[in-house]
């Protein structure tokens, strides 16, 4: 019993980060109907961006989040226009192969530049921690938690309150209907891709602060983003939060009770079962496979 509050707190903190991290994946899937296998490597790209800025210029990784976001935004729009738009017109699974190729390309490029060694962003406050009653928690985790919450909130407001957000949601709900009322799906696709990739890059800053990373960690992060999206349902902030917390609890509890080695297997198993039994996710939502 003594350890339980600690585990629950860890799950909540980690889960909130996962929610934010996966928002971009969920948005792209929900709005564009693409499963982007390079998504995890986008996050890693963000982590290396923050790493480079920190080691080169001494910029705190939490302060360079806007820079990562803008870099990701431009990268995402560019990729959408140059690559994904062309392939999206084909069978949806062609995008899987395309983004897998992109993932192989990007991760190997990172490997060429940074080598395969584990890197970490050692901020001065990395070792500090709080003790609250029965639980101990590091300052970094708390910071990441609040930033994730803040940024998730920002995305929520963007989607709910701005015209850009409304057109994104309209296209997610009904692509043809949105076209009828004068929304250009092409533009919305580019914006969504930009936003999604921006989210991935900026969550990379947080990821890099939380733990060490290598160029080839992207695949595992893609699986996590996928799991968060499929559990909650696609393209909504609330769903990503639910899915993120689910993954947080799953990982923390599996790692503690079964061992660190089983963590990734548990995620994959849940992902497999979800797809098999409830492809719409727990909270309902869209399933494109029937169309």
């Amino acid at each position: 019993m003594g350890i339980l509050p600690q585990l629950i707190l860890e799950s909540l903190l980690l889960g909130t980060f996962y929610a934010f991290m996966s928002l971009g994946f969920s948005l792209m899937w929900g709005v564009l109907n693409i499963i982007n296998l390079a998504y995890g490597t986008y996050i890693i790209l963000g982590a290396y961006t923050a790493y480079t800025l920190y080691t080169g210029l001494g910029v705190d990784p939490l302060l360079s989040i806007p820079f990562s976001f803008l870099l990701g935004l431009s990268f995402g729009v560019l990729l959408q226009r140059v690559l994904i738009d062309r392939v999206m017109r084909l069978e949806p699974f062609m995008v899987l192969i395309l983004t897998f190729g992109l993932d192989v390309f990007l991760s190997n490029l990172l490997n060429l530049i940074f080598r395969a060694d584990i890197r970490s962003i050692d901020v001065p406050y990395a070792e500090r921690s709080f003790v609250i009653g029965p639980v101990i928690v590091t300052e970094v985790k708390v910071l990441v938690f609040f930033l994730s919450l803040l940024l998730t909130g920002a995305v929520y407001v963007l989607l709910q309150k701005t015209w850009t957000g409304r057109s994104i949601r309209a296209v997610a709900l009904d692509r043809e209907g949105a076209q009828i009322v004068g929304i250009s799906p092409g533009k919305v696709f580019a914006v969504t891709s930009g936003l999604g990739t921006g989210i991935a890059f900026s969550s990379g800053n947080l990821y890099g602060v939380l733990q060490g990373f290598t160029p080839f960690d992207g695949g595992m992060l893609t699986v996590k983003a996928f799991l968060v999206s499929i559990v909650g349902g696609l393209g909504r902030v609330e769903s990503a939060l639910a899915g993120g917390l689910f993954l947080g609890f799953l990982e923390v509890f599996t790692a503690f009770y079964l061992g660190e080695g089983w963590k990734f297997f548990a995620s994959l198993l849940v992902m497999f079962l979800f797809l098999l039994i409830r492809p719409r996710g727990l909270l309902g939502g869209k399933y494109y496979g029937e169309v």
Binding site: L96, M271, L276, P279
Partner: peptide, 22 residues
Amino acid sequence: LKSHYFAITTLALQLALGELVA
């Protein structure tokens, strides 16, 4: 399941089996 849902589910199976074996 169809199309990319089917594709990604088989991929999840592949990765899960790899982790299980490991």
